[in-house]
Nucleic acid binder design. Structure first.
Lengths: 158, 158
DNA sequence: TATTGTTATACTCTATAACTATA
DNA sequence: TATAGTTATAGAGTATAACAATA
């Protein structure tokens, strides 16, 4: 393919200096890349990120109600329903009636759910370890700390 | 509302220690919060994050082709079309024929587009400044640097 | 009246395949 | 044969409103 002088920006590297100054832009790009990678990591377990996260929290907090779980995951109650439906249909968790409040369910993991959770967590951690191996221990701590504060501040802006 | 002893996890704080160890989880939460905040910031300009980002790159790189722009934004060519359609319909940018390649368009911002870009950038920066004021200069640099490396590594895992 | 889980719905973001016109 | 832009479509993710059962 021949090139001509008047191609102007055609072959020069694209400058994204303005956007790279914005935390929101960098976070979106990193988040998209990491989420796509997590989809691949969790696919063998037939789990999505949100399904996996819900399972972990149920394993770690037996007896959780759905509203509590939705809040902990920072998603809407209504969007959690299909997630719980999926985990229950596969008999990884159970919706147990609460004697003290007949509106609510106490969520508990089955043995199969606990086992799958452990296996998936090992896979996710191994996968993350390869990515995070590029970062020093201090950088990892700064990353976790700054992300948490940014989330908090962004929510407070609302 | 009365409480009973058998409420089990009902009132205890939900432990998300397992998930908080995962970079992917923290990044997703921060990204969601920041994107939601950006939506609110850009709404007065009738811009979404992707529309704003595209406009910035066109202003900074006049003559850009759509494929180059999509690659720079890390989105699919096909998803960029409606974004460019929107910006063109509002006469913020123009699709100019390229004499050297009649398949492609050279994208350029109009005066109105350049002005809107400047105004929106000021608003976004002011908004980010409030959030980033919680971070030291060193933390901001570590954040930007680590996010970029994580994006790169996650893409390479694919 | 308020809350829990649920349904329905809509809008955004992303990914893929296939088409057209050019190269 | 390959590339630029386009169209259509499907799957996630997210948000809101409204409902029945229960508190």
């Amino acid at each position: 393919m021949t090139r001509h002088a008047q191609d102007n920006a055609g072959d020069r590297p694209v400058s994204d200096a303005t956007l790279r100054d914005l935390a929101g832009y960098n976070i979106r790009r990193a988040s998209n890349a990491v989420q796509a990678d997590l989809v691949r990591t969790l696919a063998p377990f037939e789990l999505r990120m949100i399904t996996y996260s819900a399972l972990v929290l149920i394993v770690d907090n037996p007896g959780l109600r759905q509203t509590q779980l939705a809040e902990a995951l920072a998603i809407e109650r209504s969007n959690l329903v299909v997630v719980i439906d999926d985990l229950e249909r596969r008999e990884l968790i159970g919706r147990n009636p609460m004697p003290t409040d007949r509106r609510a369910y106490a969520l508990t993991a089955t043995l199969a759910g606990t086992r799958l959770c452990r296996k998936a967590t090992r896979a996710v951690r191994a996968h993350e370890a390869r990515i995070l191996s590029l970062l020093s221990e201090e950088e990892r701590q700064v990353l976790a700390s700054t992300l948490r504060r940014i989330e908090q501040a962004a929510n407070d802006e609302g």
